[in-house]
Amino acid sequence: MEHDVALTVKGLKTYFYNNNRCNRAIDGVSFEIRQGKTLCIVGESGCGKSVTAASIMQLLPTLSRIEEGEITYHGPDGPVRIDALDRGGAQMRSIRGKEIAMIFQDPMTALNPVYSIGFQIKEMLMYHTGLGRRARHDKAIDLLASMGIPLPERRVNDYPHLYSGGMRQRAMIAIAMSCNPRILIADEPTTALDVTIQAQIFELMETLKRDNGTAIMLITHDMGVVAELADDVAVMYMGNIVEAGPVGTVMRNPVHPYTRALLDSIPVLGRGKDQEIKAIPGQTPDPYDRPKGCQFADRCMHRIDKCDEMPPETQVSDDHRVMCWRYQEFASNGR
């Protein structure tokens, strides 16, 4: 079975210019999102996951810009270079929301408190569909119903503060899915929610992916989520994708020391109380005072002199790539 590619990112660099400094938030990132598949981007906070998402949506803050690289959306009307579009222009806006939709980390703050949930769904429909007033209302109710919200006819007129956290995130997903986007970007959608709610939200996303063929880019810091949901995974560290590949390959045969450290730092059910959980030593470097070469070098147990040079992206196998000088040694001895 062949999968269409929905979005390609090539050599993307996004820099921030706050406080009269330049922060290389993303420094050369490449990946693709496949139709009907889930790509997980995993990494610690501050590694550039959310900036990647914001770059794709062209929702970057004012004091930042895409320096170089390509973001290509493979839409129904042929490919579109997103990075070349004007941030607030009509073309970008017609993609944003309709073709690529996004849900955010904290459903408590991501919804406007002074408008009803229904209004916030209908707003999206108003801009991207030709539906009339009545039809928009019915569609909003349908969407809420399909997100598993009870009594949608009544709840559609409720304000966000009357919704629980999990329900708000469902409503958020309803907004995002209202125009059947080809790509759904989910930026840590469950971090702010209870664990039981988490599972429900993920299940909902899985269903949407299966039923609508939506491509999902899921941003998370949780390796457990990756193992469960991802088809592909990309591990980010300080603005680089240090390792990427199909989830099975990367989880079974991680070759970057950072990926290995991440996997070692999560407890595994069934290994008992005495299992060794290794924390990663040190801290992420100051983004304004980065190491010259490999960004992970200072915290890496396997550091060699050569690590002062930035390692290139190297293919381990056809679909598995890594940025590390010594990956071959780790690849051979496995896990």
Binding site: Y15, Y17, N20, R21, C22, T62, L63, R65, I66, E67, E70, T72, G78, P79, R81, D83, A84, L85, D86, Y288
Partner: peptide
């Protein structure tokens, strides 16, 4: 279509950003 060199129009801020980036480098 993709291959055609497309560039975003430069804005007033871009020059300022360039200077900052160069200084940082």
């Amino acid at each position: 279509m993709v291959d055609a060199p497309i560039t975003r129009p430069r804005t007033r801020r871009d020059g300022q950003f360039d200077r900052l980036r160069d200084r940082e480098t």
